[in-house]
Simulated scan of single mutants.
Amino acid sequence: MSHDPRPCEVVADLHNGWDVNWGVDWDDDDDGSFSHASTAPDNDTVFSASENGYVTDELELYPIDEGDSDGDNDDQRSELSWQLSCAESTSVCPSVFEDEVAHGRRYHGYRKGRYPLPNDRREQQREEANHAMMLELTGGHLLYSDIGEHPQKIIDIGTGTGSWAIDVADLYPSASVIGTDLSAIQPKWVPVNVRMFVDDCEEPDWLHGSGYDLVHFRGMAGVLHDLDGVLAKAYPRIRNGGWVEFHEVVPQILCDDGTMGPDDPLRIFYDAAVQGLRTFGCDPMRTANLEEILDRAGFTNIRCVTKKIPISTWAHERHLKILGLFMKAVMLDSLDGLAAKPLAALGVSRQDRRELVKHVKKSLEDRSVHRYVNCCFCYGQKKEQFVLETES
């Protein structure tokens, strides 16, 4: 059974381990959020500022750890654009262009507050490192489902920076590939068979057709509010014999040889982050039960492959060392985002979150602690349905 402490236990563990003040003082904590229209330094909007009066100057963002910077500057601005879908109207939703800024990080504006993690440059860097790690973990395979050599339609829900969708489009030029996300952070230049949409997959309407060979999710199972509902909506849009596939890192810090103590900073941090994410309607530990969820949704031929990923470079074998280096990079880039909204929701002050991140970063440098996480690849097939034709 996983260790899943209540918020009060998390606070007690952290207090005992590092002697920081966990008292809540909202008057001193200026972590409130605000909206800033079209401030994303790595996005070009389909509207110009002169036409709509949107602000286009970059907003300098400061992460929780004051010694770091977000890495955004004018010389490194990437050109990004997107196509937009909106259930309420055929026109572009204005909220797409209004970024939320909170705790020194930038968040999506469309369906503001739905997803509690950032979408800024540091988060995009984390996604790219995570994509490289997944390729190393799977030996270069983008998917496990048997979709054949010439699939026709693939959709990547929660595509993020679009790396998986772009790679799968290159691998299968026969397929029309769609990527959807709450954030418009995908590159402008993509393969000709790729289309990107700003969309909320939990809205009642499905706006992207049917007949899919594959519906793909990465890092989404634990942050959707109603995964059963999303799968129920996707199921009829998958062709007979088509697949759904999840790639999910289970956010639980594990160790098999006793080198991780009960007061391990990284473990305590992730336990707290899981509790914080739950306050936003997420269920991060749902990733450990995907086989049951797919069965409940009506899929058959369900398979789950679980692989261990070391944290840092403590493992001896070269492949595992590379994986550990990737995972360390992914975690370092995720700390500020996880310590922002999720831990603030538990009542942790800004100063205490900074102190916590500092301890966790130091812990990640300790190769004597043999920690790891599990990554689950779970996929299932829509049952073939044969229709018998009879003479009238």
Rank of each mutant, 00 (worst) to 15 (best):
V250F: 09
G324C: 05
R111K: 10
E245K: 00
D366A: 04
S312Q: 09
R353K: 03
V177M: 05
L137V: 03
Q381M: 15
R354D: 12
G241F: 01
Y54T: 14
V177W: 03
I154Q: 01
G209I: 14
Y372V: 04
Y54H: 15
D75E: 14
A169F: 05
P5H: 10
L323K: 08
M327Q: 12
H247F: 01
Q351S: 10
L338S: 06
I302N: 02
G140R: 08
K308L: 14
H141M: 07
V10S: 14
L14M: 07
V305M: 12
W22Y: 09
N240K: 10
A234F: 00
F34C: 11
N43D: 09
G211L: 02
T39P: 08
E389M: 07
T90C: 15
R350A: 14
S38Y: 14
F246L: 03
H247P: 02
D74E: 13
E384Y: 12
A297L: 01
T161C: 14
P7L: 04
N73F: 14
E60D: 11
V194D: 13
H150S: 06
E127F: 03
N240I: 01
V249Q: 06
N193P: 13
D271K: 09
V249K: 03
E136R: 15
N193W: 03
T313G: 04
A184T: 13
Y212P: 05
N240Q: 15
A329V: 08
V92C: 08
G347P: 12
H3V: 12
H208F: 11
N289I: 00
D68R: 15
S368M: 14
E391Y: 12
Q152F: 01
L320R: 06
L320C: 03
Y235L: 02
T39M: 15
L214T: 00
R126Q: 12
E384S: 08
G258S: 10
I293W: 00
Q83A: 12
L142D: 08
N301L: 04
Y62D: 08
T180Y: 05
V46A: 09
K328L: 10
E317Q: 08
G337C: 02
R354H: 13
L182D: 07
L61N: 00
H108R: 07
S174G: 03
E58S: 08
F47L: 09
G104D: 02
G17H: 10
D333V: 10
K153R: 07
P284I: 10
Q252A: 11
Y172P: 00
L137P: 03
